[in-house]
Design a protein around this nucleic acid. Sequence first.
DNA 1: GTGAAAGCGCTAACAT
DNA 2: ATGTTAGCGCTTTCAC
Lengths: 343, 343
Amino acid sequence: MTRTPLDPRRPLTLRDVSEASGVSEMTVSRVLRNRGDVSDATRAKVLEAAQRLGYVPNKIAGALASQRVNLVAVIIPSLSNLVFPDVLGGISEVLEDTGLQPVVGVTKYSPQREESILYEMLSWRPSGVIIAGLEHTPAARSMLENAGIPIVEIMDSDGKGVDSVVGISHRRAGREMAAAIVAAGYKRIAFLGTKMPDDHRARKRLEGFIEGLAKAGLELVDSVFYSGGSALLKGREMTKAVLKRHPEIDFLYYSNDMIGAGGLLWCLENGYDVPGKLGLAGFNGVDLLDGLPRRLATMDACRHEIGIRAAEIIAGRSHSGQIGGEVVELTPVLQPGDTIRKR
Amino acid sequence: MTRTPLDPRRPLTLRDVSEASGVSEMTVSRVLRNRGDVSDATRAKVLEAAQRLGYVPNKIAGALASQRVNLVAVIIPSLSNLVFPDVLGGISEVLEDTGLQPVVGVTKYSPQREESILYEMLSWRPSGVIIAGLEHTPAARSMLENAGIPIVEIMDSDGKGVDSVVGISHRRAGREMAAAIVAAGYKRIAFLGTKMPDDHRARKRLEGFIEGLAKAGLELVDSVFYSGGSALLKGREMTKAVLKRHPEIDFLYYSNDMIGAGGLLWCLENGYDVPGKLGLAGFNGVDLLDGLPRRLATMDACRHEIGIRAAEIIAGRSHSGQIGGEVVELTPVLQPGDTIRKR
DNA sequence: GTGAAAGCGCTAACAT
DNA sequence: ATGTTAGCGCTTTCAC
C-alpha cells in the first residue's frame, strides 16, 4: 500500500499541523510539549489545528530524536496471583505524576521467558526496569548490568542485586512464622505449597521455616506440593490428603493465602478444632482473607509499599536521594488472625 | 551528560557491531533480523560480535525506519478483577507466535483515563488496539476511528463498535439468568452489585435481569450497591444487610462471583437453606468457585476465548478471514451449580 | 551475497 | 518568540 499525500489513513505528522496552522514545525513541536516560550496567539492556532486534524504525536520519532523514553519496564511472574496487581498499583500511583509509564511483562515464572521479555523491553530503551526477584539467567543479569539505566529488583531481599533492591526477606519471614508457631506450642507441623521450581521466594520462605523449626528441635512432619488449577480447591485437596496421611499433624503452613484459605474452609467444614487442635497460616496478607469465616494467620508481604518504593527509586524520588544501589528491606508483619492459638 | 565515543554506558549501535565484526551495518542488520541472503561465514562473525558486545537492538530506530511496530495496545479497566488476567492470557497465547507483543494499560473504569491511555498508546503507533467495552469518550472514539489500524472492542456485544467486536451480550446474560431463576420458582428477588457507574457491562446485566423479571411479572424487591474494600467481605455485608431489611427475599443475584462467594459463605454460616429457601447466583465463572463449600450458580463470561478471538483478529488470523468490522458474539453458558434449586 | 545512500518524524542546538 | 539545520539509529531501496 503506497502512501500518497492524499491518503486519509496516513498518520498525520507535525508537518501537517504546521501547514494547517501556518506555524513552523519546531514551534508546533514546542506547543505540543509545553516547552519554551510561545505566544498565546500561536499556541492557540496550533492547538486548534492539532485538535481539528486529530493529530497524535509520533513518540517513536520523538524518542529517537530526544534519546528519551518515558517508559518503565515492569517484569513480574504472574498476574493471576492477587499479589502483583497490588505491586503494580503502588508503581502506577507513584509514576502517574512523573510522566513515566509502566509497561508490564509477565514471565510465568520462566527464566527463559524473563530473559526474552527483558531483551524485548530493553530494545525500547526504557528509562528504568523494575523486575521481580534476584534470580535471573546469566544473560539476563548481564543485560541488566549493562543497560545503563536504573534497575530495581523487587519482592526479595535475600541475595545480592544488580543495582537497587526493594523487598522483604522471605527467609526471615519463614523463620519468624516458625518461631510464632513453636511459641504457640504446636509441634507436628507440615508445609503445603504449590510446585514452582522457579518461585524462589516461596522456596526461601520454606527454607527459613525449616530453619526456624530446627532451632526449636523440630522437623517438618510432611510437605506437599501441587500445581495447576484453582488455588482454593488445591488448598482443600492438599489439606485433606496430608491430614489423612498424618492425622497427628497440629499445624499447617501454606505457601500462600489462597491455598491457605482453601485449607481453612475444608478444616472448618470437617469439624476440626481450629486453632485449638490444628493451627493454620498462610502468606501474603491478601484482602480476600477479610471475607473468610475466620481470619487466617498470615504475614503481610508489603506489596503495595514495595511498588511505591521501587517506583520512587526509578523516578529519582527516593527518600534517600541516593543514586543507584539502594537497598530497601521492608519488614513483613505477622497477623496472627484466628488460626494460631494464643498461649 | 555528553556521549564520548569511549563512554562505556553509551548504548551500543549497529555500527559498533559492524566495526567489531568487519561487516557493513546493513549486513549486520540483515543477520540480526534473519532477512535476505547472508553467507554462513559472515552470519557467524556477526552473531559472535553482537553476543560478545551484548548488543541490544534499538527498536525505536527500527520502528521509525520500517514504519512497523510489533506492539498491540490492550486497554482494560482493572487487573484485580480475576477476569481481565484471563483475557490477557488468551491474548498472549495467540500473539506469542506472531511476533506481536501486548502492552497493557489500565483505566480503573475511568473514561478520562481511558482516553489519555489510548492517546499515549497510539502515539507509539501500535499494530492494533484491543479495548474493553463499547463506551468511550467522543475523543477516544474518534481516535479509534482514525487510527488506521485494527481495533477490537471486547467483552460486550450490546451496541455498535468502531471496527471489530468480540464479546457477549450482558443484557441477554441478565435476561437468561432471570429466566432460570423464575423457572426455578423463586419470586422475591434482589440484586447486589458494586457501585461502578462506568461498569457498563454490569449495568447492562442488571437491565437485562430486570427485563427478564418483568417478563414474568416480577420486580426486584431490593438492590444494593457498595464500593471499595474486599469484594468477598462486601458480599457478606451486603447480603446480611439486605436479608435483614427484606427477610422475605428468596433469591440474591450478585453482579460478580466474588461478592457472590462472600454472600454464599455468609448464608451457609447463618444456617440459610440454600438453595431450598434462598437461591444465589453470581457472574463470571471464576475458578475460585471450585474451592467453595458449595458451587455458586454463575455464568461463564468466556473470558479466555474472548482474548483468543480478539488477538486472532489483530493478528489477521481470524477464522473468517474478514478484514475489519468483524463481530463475534460468544454465548455464555449458565452453570446452575448448587445454589439454584431444581424443579 | 554485500554495500552505499536516503530518509523515517521528530527534537537539540543554534540562529535570528 | 520563532525558524533553520543536523542528526537520532535504524531499514528501505537500489547498485554492484
